[in-house]
Design a protein around this nucleic acid. Sequence first.
DNA 1: AGAGAGCCAGTGCTTACATCA
DNA 2: GATGATGTAAGCACTGGCTCT
Length: 263
Amino acid sequence: MGLDDVHNTSLCLGLGIGCLVKQENFSPSDHQQQKKNRSFLKHDQFLPSLSLGPSFVKFDSSKVDGEAIDLHQRQASSLSLSAVSSFSNSSVKRERDLGGEEVELERVSSRVSDENEEGSPRKKLRLSKEQSAILEDSFKEHSTLNPKQKQALAEQLNLRLRQVEVWFQNRRARTKLKQTEVDCELLKKCCETLTEENKRLHRELQELKSLKLTASYYMQLPAATLTMCPSCEKVDNGGESPSASTTFTIGQKSHFFTVHSLH
DNA sequence: AGAGAGCCAGTGCTTACATCA
DNA sequence: GATGATGTAAGCACTGGCTCT
C-alpha cells in the first residue's frame, strides 16, 4: 500500500484529536459534488493522529457524471431487466436448489406504478437482483449521484427518481454503519494493546523503583567499595566480597535510568 | 430572510430466513 | 418430515431537521 493508497483509503477513527484536513484534487466544478459527499469527506479527508487502517469507502473525486451513466447503459444492454420490482402485493417465492443458490421465481406483478389498484399509496417493494446489482455498481462508482445520473439510473432501472434517491441514502447509511463497526473493533483492539502496554510499563516502573532503593542502600556504603562497569551497567563492590552477592544489574539499556556517580 | 434542494438520522413496516415446538 | 408460531436481520420508504445556494 503506497502513500496514494493511504490517502485514498485513509481510515478516520473519529478521535477528534489532531485531525488534519487532507488535500484532495477537487476542481472548482467539483464543489457541488464535494458538498454532496460531505459525509464521506469526514471519513476520507480528516486524518487523525491515530491511524489504524484503511477505510472501506474509496471516493474518487475525479470521476463524476458520465462514466456511471455509461456503465449503466452498458450493463442495461447486457441485462434484460425485469422492470418489475417485487411488491408486497406480488408474491415472490424464493427457493434454494441443491447447490444452495437462490432461484427467484417471480409471479408477475402487474404493474410498476406508484399506487396499487386500490389507489392507496404503495407500501413496500424489494428490488430485483438485477436492479440491486446495477445500483451497487453505481454506488461503487459514486456514493452520491447528481440529478442527471439519478434520472438516468431511474429510467434505466424503471424506478422512480425517489426510489433511487432513497436507495442511495440507505446504502450510504449502511456503509457508514459498517465502517463504524469496523472502527469500533479497531479501537477496541487498540485499547487492549494500550492497556497491556500500560500494565507492562507499570511493572517495569515498579522494578526500577525497587532497584533504585537497592542502589540507594549501596550508595550509603563507602564509595571506594562500589564500582560500576560502564558497558554492562553492573555495580561491583570492588572485590571486597567476591562471593557474588554484591553485583547487580540496573535495568536494561533501553530504559531511562542513569546512575551518575557513585562517589 | 425565506424558499427550495439535498442529505442524514431515526424510525416504521415488510420480507426473507432461521429456529423451535 | 411437515407445519405454524416466533424472533431477527435486512431492505424499502417516510419524516423531520439541518446545511447550503
